[in-house]
Simulated assay, not measured.
Amino acid sequence: MARHYGTAIIPARPYKPKDKSKAENAVLIVERWILMRLRYEHFYTLSSLNQRIRELLMELNQRQQRVHPGSRYELYMRLDKPALMPLPAYAYTYIDSKQARVGPDYHVLYAKHAYSVPHNLVGQTVTLEATAQIICLYYHGNVVAQHPRKHQPGGFSTMKEHMPDAHVKQRWSAERLLGWAESIGSGCRAIIASQLERRQHPEQAIKSCLAILNLATKYGQDRLEAACLKALLLEQPHRKVILNLLLNNKEQDLSGTDIDEHPMMNHHNIRGQHYYQ
């Protein structure tokens, strides 16, 4: 931002309160001459409040100072304004920059939304620059992809030219994922098939499919298969549901409901269903 406006940012020194005295005094003056004078006034629109603040600010800047001769406005016109440079031709735009590794589905994740890059960059590290309107992706300093900024969590922005000509060009194909899942069990295969069908392009589901299949490494194939079967029974074939079942050891209960280990308590305040007509 400093380079854009051709200025320099010099922060106050730590443990040197006198460095901040000018700024703090300016805040105090604004509180006394503007905010304190507004405390008894009523405003019903933001524009009317802004108009009143503008009037009081003009009055404050025209007020004669005691130490320095002239008003703040006169000093600004005589000293500051002649030294000012013209504003840049376009407004400053904040850019969020980060390094990201391209996933096996040739997408890069930013703010929970996936953006595609050419499929031959799978496994490579790219630089992502994000503004409020556009996402730019660079590889070795060259632009490899541009996408309009999307704010849809879990969504995909995929360009057709980034897609491989055939699944065989990829390390992971739908057939290989289904084959791996089938070696674990029919329930796991059904979950992976569901993940592939939910996406507009099967390649977009590779990352989520691998995340589910890799759970077998930590929890074992039998537990993963049981969790997949229960997730299908609950009609929630999602990784988050499967992981939650595994973490809480609930995958073996195929009833779809949690079993209450404590018997119902008998108490005169508990009236039961027969109480209500």
Rank of each mutant, 00 (worst) to 15 (best):
R78A: 15
R78T: 14
L79N: 14
D80M: 10
P82W: 10
P82T: 09
A83M: 14
M85T: 12
P88H: 05
P88Q: 05
A89C: 08
Y90M: 08
A91V: 04
A91Y: 05
Y94A: 13
I95Q: 13
A100I: 08
A100K: 12
A100T: 10
R101E: 14
R101M: 12
V102Y: 03
V102L: 04
V102C: 05
V102R: 02
D105C: 02
H107I: 02
H107G: 07
V108Y: 03
L109F: 02
L109C: 10
Y110I: 06
A114G: 00
A114P: 00
Y115G: 03
Y115F: 12
V117P: 01
P118T: 07
H119F: 12
V122P: 03
G123K: 04
G123H: 05
G123V: 04
L128M: 14
E129Y: 03
A130S: 10
A130D: 01
T131Y: 05
A132I: 01
A132G: 10
I134D: 09
I134T: 15
I135R: 02
L137C: 13
Y138P: 06
Y139K: 05
H140R: 15
H140L: 15
H140E: 14
G141I: 14
G141N: 07
V143H: 00
A145V: 06
Q146K: 12
H147F: 03
H147N: 08
H147Y: 04
H147A: 09
R149K: 13
H151F: 14
P153R: 09
S157E: 10
E161S: 12
H162Y: 07
H167K: 04
H167N: 04
V168A: 13
Q170K: 08
Q170V: 07
S173F: 02
S173M: 06
E175A: 08
E175H: 06
L177H: 05
L178C: 10
L178M: 12
W180G: 00
A181H: 04
E182T: 10
S183Q: 13
I184K: 02
G185F: 08
G185T: 07
G185V: 06
G185P: 02
S186K: 07
S186M: 04
C188M: 11
I191C: 03
I192K: 01
S194V: 03
S194C: 11
Q195C: 08
Q195T: 00
L196C: 05
E197M: 06
P202F: 03
Q204E: 11
A205F: 01
K207M: 00
K207E: 06
